[in-house]
Design a binder for these strands. Sequence first.
DNA 1: CTAAATGCAAACGGTTTGCAATGCT
DNA 2: AGCATTGCAAACCGTTTGCATTTAG
Lengths: 143, 143
Amino acid sequence: MKNTIKQLKEYLINHNIKPSTIRLKVLEYLLNNRIHPTADDIYKNLLPQIPTLSKTSIYNTMELFANNGVVKILSFDGKEAHYDVNTELHGHFKCRRCGIIYDFNVPFDIPIPNELKEFDVKEVDINFYGICHKCNKQRGQEM
Amino acid sequence: MKNTIKQLKEYLINHNIKPSTIRLKVLEYLLNNRIHPTADDIYKNLLPQIPTLSKTSIYNTMELFANNGVVKILSFDGKEAHYDVNTELHGHFKCRRCGIIYDFNVPFDIPIPNELKEFDVKEVDINFYGICHKCNKQRGQEM
DNA sequence: CTAAATGCAAACGGTTTGCAATGCT
DNA sequence: AGCATTGCAAACCGTTTGCATTTAG
């Protein structure tokens, strides 16, 4: 909706990715549905539009996207991968009740700890777990 | 070595776990090998002492330990679980080259971000990825 | 003797693989 | 035609399951 096909193509080309039908559809989906979807989410959503679609292609596409900085791969509790089009540094909160993944700003500069002074830190994951405010309210009513 | 069987038993009982042969051996291994082992690491290490040991028992034990605060389950990049007997809040650095997992102190109070003010945060994971100093040195020599 | 702990084998689920089919220029 | 993209089916691997067997109090 928000992005023209031309814009999507440019976006991929800027990330050194040849635009193909599937890649454009996946990108469009990711940009319009910022819910940290799984491979299965993406697959299920695009299947009606691309009846010949395979999961393999989703995985191929996501690996390509990850390697070219289009998405960051998230995982929580060692479970299935989620994909985040927002590759800027930020934290995630995963609700253990409803499963929704919330973004939050890391409201502090993350200092490299002394122990890691000579380490080459390339990536930082900050994941919180618990119960989100919506589920907290519901839980309150139940009791 | 460091811990008598009596001490190990007490440790489990304090965590509301009935001491069994396997549980004691696993605990002993964890306390003496603080390398964030996987289920397979633990299994392989104990097999010589307990020839009838099964992986299922390792998984059962680790789930019990996790539920009773004896270990924290770690996972990196969505891969196999690692188990940490140190359940105090601290961060981890995983070297993408040698695979070693380093601990570090989180040298800052982690403020709950505004976005999560009404959230019930129960767990915090802080994982860094990159190349550790040992591998950095090696890499320097190679080139 | 009973209940809990352990072990076996099969199933599971997400992901990866090898290779064939298809599409694009 | 030739190379990249896509799709299929099978393999893979860590984990979980159901149930039978063993162990310990």
